[in-house]
Design a protein around this nucleic acid. Structure first.
Lengths: 225, 225
DNA sequence: GATCGGATTTAGAGCCGTCTAACCCTAAAC
DNA sequence: GTTTAGGGTTAGACGGCTCTAAATCCGATC
């Protein structure tokens, strides 16, 4: 069996792998999980012994297929829980992360299936992130790009808001930045700050690069006259 | 803070105290939690240091008020979860115990409150056991007696089925023994076996003493002509 | 009131996940 | 190609929870 902590490491490695093609460094994991590097090293040794990661000393790790499957299972649990909490227990999308983080390790397969059924087998969570299917195949990467990659005048649709901070998420929601809304880019400053107008509100919102790069968007159907 | 394991000990002690006025013995806790006696002894020392139990060496423990409050909180979580799972996620009452046992340590105050609200602040769980209130005052003992204490001809109403074994619970449900049903006692054998007819079904059911003593019942309104 | 058996506690150990301190490797800079 | 800064690993320790083996206590019996 696999401890909660091991699941957390595998999940963290998976998520770090999403934003790079390199092997994942000890220090990156340490930052993500808020532990020290030696702690990570010793955990990685255990995970390697069990066949969940492929480790090259001093060079970081990658997940094995088994490791990836575990990570996807945990992420499926997490995102189903986030969805359930918002749909059926009246949570706000900004509040669900922490609760899901604690529960994700403690639900049975049965519970997972019942929650998925109650939600109608959803494919994305409240933040717009894809929920891995019950087959635990890696979901294909959403084709959204960071909103920072667009220019003044572009009109885009928010697909995913990949932040975890409740305060930031609340702020974004209040300013009309949520999955599904249309954003008209008004300005992208040289230091990365994005200013946009949301279709929902009639006010502008400015986001520093650190926040904006979590806002993944797509251009609406390219077919326009 | 209090570990999951500590919560389990406090809950176990509380539950053992329900069926006796004596101090709770090391071995009783060991049986309940499926660990060895020395393990229990060392845990009890820690719980004593933290003020959750009152320990007399070689004489067993009792909960302090603080310990009781923790136990009641865990039990509240457990029973709310059992109720929620049956009401909203289509679980059968026989299946909920195990799932609730894992989740009870990992839900927030907020989650507890939302679940309680979604259920309409229920006072009993699907097994008929009282759910401690949000104030965590000890619920008054249900006045039901074990069905084994009645005699041939008595008619009683099932208040609580305090078993945890899914197979036994399924069997009981199939034979019409559930909270709320009326039972006519047909026989109480000298070795404790109870035979009864359920108002729900038209068949008899016989229960060995070990099962029957978990079936708590009350006599319907004594006022009969 | 002494003895004996069963339960409890003490002693010592192990695994897990974590830490700090010290050492060592890698890769970038010169 | 050396050097060096910074990150990674090794070494050693600790707290939490568990175990087995050994010592000790309680209380029932005689």
């Amino acid at each position: 069996m696999l401890s909660d902590v091991m699941e957390d490491y595998l999940k963290a490695i998976y998520q770090l792998q999403q934003s790079t093609d390199d092997r994942i460094k000890t220090s990156a994991i340490a930052d993500e999980l808020d532990v020290t590097s030696p702690t990570v090293t010793s955990m990685l040794e255990k995970l390697e012994d069990r066949g969940f990661v492929d480790r090259k000393k001093y060079r970081g790790v990658t997940l094995t297929d088994e490791g990836e499957t575990v990570a996807l299972e945990v992420i499926r649990h997490h995102r189903l829980l986030e969805s359930y909490l918002t749909e059926h227990l009246d949570y706000d999308w900004s509040e669900v992360h922490e609760e899901a983080d604690r529960l994700e390790h403690h639900i049975s397969e049965d519970f997972e299936a019942r929650v998925a059924a109650a939600l109608g087998e959803p494919e994305v969570d409240p933040h717009g992130s894809p929920i891995p299917g019950a087959d635990l195949e890696p979901p294909q990467r959403p084709d959204g790009k960071s909103v920072t990659e667009f220019d003044e005048g572009d009109v885009v649709v928010v697909e995913e808001v990949a932040d975890r901070d409740p305060e930031i998420l609340s702020y974004l929601a209040e300013h009309g930045v949520e999955p599904g809304v249309e954003l008209e880019i008004l300005e992208v400053a040289p230091f990365g700050m994005v200013t946009a107008r949301s279709s929902g509100r009639d006010a502008e919102v400015s986001l520093p690069e650190s926040v904006a790069h979590h806002v993944r968007v797509a251009q609406p159907a390219e077919i326009e006259s």
